[in-house]
Amino acid sequence: MAKELTAAQRVALARDPRRPSPEDYLHGLFTDFFEQRGDRLFGDDRSIVGGIARYHGRPVTVICTRKGKTLEEHLQAHFGMPEPEGYRKARRLMEQAEKFGRPIITFVDTPGAYPGLEAEERGQADAIAQNLARMSSLTVPFVAVICGEGGSGGALALSMGNRVLMLENAVYSVLSPEGFASILWKDSSRVEEACEVMKLTAQDLLELGVIDEIVPEPEELESLGTRLRIMDAALTKHLDAVVRLKDPARHRQEKFAAMGEAWIRGGKT
């Protein structure tokens, strides 16, 4: 996509319902998908779909967020906002991938973790925290792809990959621009300004060292075939690279320990 877009335009694109979903990549790029459901503790969250599949013949564990396509699915999945059960299911699948030596691939498009009463009761904070800790020490290679909205801790809880890729018009941020404007300026009408200030586009995040590569997007939103081809090439390249890592856990720990290093002053090491 050659046109220069504003950050606010990219936020709109990232949220566009016509945009291919993580599940489209799952079904387009993987074969032999076997879905595994439930967290073995409380229930099965429909906003996260995961299981075993083959990627170019190799067994992998794939985990996707899911917003749903029909109204009923939207409601079931809280429009792609996972409950603690979703994160715990993801953790269960990741630990199983580790046990059987399968690489992990995640596709993330979520406005954030669901801010509901029951979600809090069942430990949303705990579920996310445990995922972060566990992802840092997984001994298998892990590639994460931010496909649309990378909303805060709810997105990070599935995205601590050895490589983090991001679609050209995806966004990834500490909070929604709406929330940002209303918290910092007490003025939710300044959303556009927030989009610019927050540095949430793929280009911004590449410069900040938060992601590793931008996956280009064709101009047409619905052009699934072209998108799949581009995604396939990027994913193959990065998966091949991380599979060769001697110690993926250590690589991940060092990668995330360095986040923001350039923005520290003082304090000897």
Binding site: I128, A129, L132, A133, M135, S136, S137, S152, G153, L156, M160, Y172, S173, V174, L175, F180, I183, L184, M198, K199, L200, D204, L205, L208, V210, R252, Q253, F256, A257, M259, G260, W263
Partner: peptide
């Protein structure tokens, strides 16, 4: 909020440590 996405990454950093 004032440090944007880098603040979010501190969740990963601290949890890993």
């Amino acid at each position: 909020m004032q440090e944007g996405i880098l603040s979010l990454m501190q969740m990963a950093k601290t949890a890993a440590a």
